[in-house]
Write a protein that binds this DNA or RNA. Structure first.
Lengths: 329, 329
DNA sequence: TAAGCGGTTGCAAATATTTGCGTGATCCGG
DNA sequence: CCGGATCACGCAAATATTTGCAACCGCTTA
């Protein structure tokens, strides 16, 4: 009775083949016909058999803001691997300079009928307008997980690194080394993890005057840190390793040394940070565990399990290397 | 019934041919007629057939072997950006641990009806079996470009960094610094760029006994370099920056210093190599130019232009930093 | 294991668009 | 007013796209 696809076909007055082609986004269907079929699909509330969808696509979108910061490729590697083990394939979507917006990617992924989407370090920078595509995902009930990218108001499961702990242990480390004038180099003002670190910093007695916001790049870190160095900080906590590297450069440019004159702490513990000069003391995000958790949450959703839209917080840990030292007497 | 173009033609009172010419901006239509057709087109709300109009998905697959080596994310960024400027979207496909093979990705991409595929540092490791999927691409006539990944026998356009020049300038640099016992740390034996470097090394009088093959990772470099160090080399040329970093570590583990006792040269000039300890002397691949060229070649193919299946060779350049020095007296 | 149920796909017919070529109209310079 | 050149345009052939038919595939059920 439920010649489901056939039913739609009859309603529109086309063959089942055509409906099938529309369903699969195949070429060879005129725009007008496609439109008509899509409408009928909607009207009749067609739902493709679950097993077929899974069988064919098994694609998962992985949306990252950039690839410059080594933490993102690393994360992609973890998530891609974890997905592969579950029989999914990751499609990486990265914002590029002239390029494609996050919303565009969402449409694209939707059109490609992905089984789910993982966002990492996503679109924090927009207040209102940009949430449309998240809502779209929500409406369509597409399994979604957010990593380190709090989106208020929408209840997606989230996996994050605990920024409060991160800021606390960084600050505690510098304090223990005797540093009093501690500064902070953060990402953009509306970047949620940065905001959380700032709050913790303040709560822990940090001087809000010694906080600089910048964009997430080595050069940004350099510029922001230069301002802090001019104000006489002896320790700097950075919101990413790249920013920390920029900070090191700024300190040296000012004729001082790390950690001799200024101690620097990074965040992420991305690859190669033990090869830098000096080896960077940093707060490690457990990206391996986080990536796996994100994938588990996603797969659970895909398997129609009920997943609470909580934020799973992962504990970072301090990795002490050579960029921090006791404050100069 | 919907003789769409014919309808417009009738309304204006011209032939379909004329309407077609207007549509495609072809010459041979008077201004008045063109105007009239354009108006009718507007009035009747004519839409060109899908594939002709704005093209469908405009997806391009970008297949990379890994993301650990920072050169690959960097390359992805360049290619993704260049593609975006041309109105394409890159779908990144990366081999992951448990994961998906290159052949699987090809099938996937084919199924997603991508407009083309760019391979970088692809599947060199297999001699025979693994070429099936390349042939598949060839048969289907899917636009394809290979970067640093010579595949013999199949004529795809290729963009590569000139490994001969790379090896020559690295060797010349060390020789100029007085090094006699120069070793080499290369990738797997069947990795074409490594093989080319090896040949050049030999041709330039390098000692084949001082060449080690390993996998492309810091640890691999460490292990391979340890063997060379034991044999008393004073200079090491590496096939990637990661290998070079591993080599530095091996030298230090042996109780010696870089560049004091052993000089090390990397290859790629990936990000952050000026932040390492010591800052790495390396042979820079012009990935920006290469990425752009690859995209240009791809887009030309997509636009049905005839693209010669040549290998475009890009000249690398030596970036001298602090990991090489005059040989110890 | 066969039969049935969706759904997908190869193929060829139907339909639509583009293009080469020829015709007639128009425009000029003698 | 007469060629000759040029141009716009239609005809029809060439080419490309859309669509339905029917065979087929993978899965479930009898």
């Amino acid at each position: 009775m439920t010649r489901r696809l056939a039913e739609v076909a009859k309603k529109v007055g086309v063959s089942e083949a055509t409906v099938s082609r529309v369903l699969n986004g195949k070429p060879g269907v005129s725009e007008a016909t496609r439109e008509a079929v899509l409408t009928a699909l909607d009207v009749l509330g067609y739902e493709r058999p679950t097993q077929l969808r899974g069988d064919r696509a098994r694609l998962v979108g992985l949306v990252l803001p950039e690839l410059q910061n080594p933490i993102f490729p690393a994360f992609a590697e973890v998530v891609g691997g974890a997905l592969a083990q579950q029989g999914f394939t990751a499609v990486l979507c990265t914002r590029t300079v002239g390029g494609v917006s996050e919303a565009d990617y969402v449409h694209l992924l939707l059109q490609q009928q992905v089984s789910g989407v993982v966002f990492a370090g996503g679109l924090y920078a927009q207040a209102d307008a940009a949430h449309g595509h998240y809502e779209l995902l929500h409406e369509r009930g597409l399994p979604t997980v957010l990593v380190n990218a709090a989106v208020e108001r929408l209840d997606f499961p989230q996996v994050s690194c605990d920024d409060v702990v991160a800021a606390e242990i960084a600050l505690a480390h510098l304090r223990a080394l005797g540093h009093e004038r501690v500064g902070m180099v953060l990402g953009p003002k509306d970047h949620v993890p940065s905001r959380r670190k700032l709050e913790t910093f303040r709560a822990g007695g940090g001087d809000p005057e010694l906080v600089e916001h910048t964009m997430f790049s080595l050069e940004g870190g350099h510029a922001a840190a230069a301002r802090l160095v001019a104000r006489g900080v002896t320790g700097v906590i950075c919101a990413s390793d790249l920013l920390a590297l920029g900070t090191v450069r700024a300190v040296r440019r000012a004729g001082m040394s790390v950690p001799g004159d200024v101690s620097v702490i990074g965040f992420d513990d991305s690859a190669l940070m033990n090869c830098t000069d000096p080896a960077l003391t940093t707060v490690r995000q457990p990206i391996d565990a986080m990536g796996r958790a994100a994938v588990d949450l996603l797969v659970a959703q895909i398997d129609k399990a009920v997943v609470p839209a909580d934020e799973l917080l992962y504990e970072p840990e301090l990795v002490v290397r050579a960029s921090t030292a006791r404050v100069r007497a």
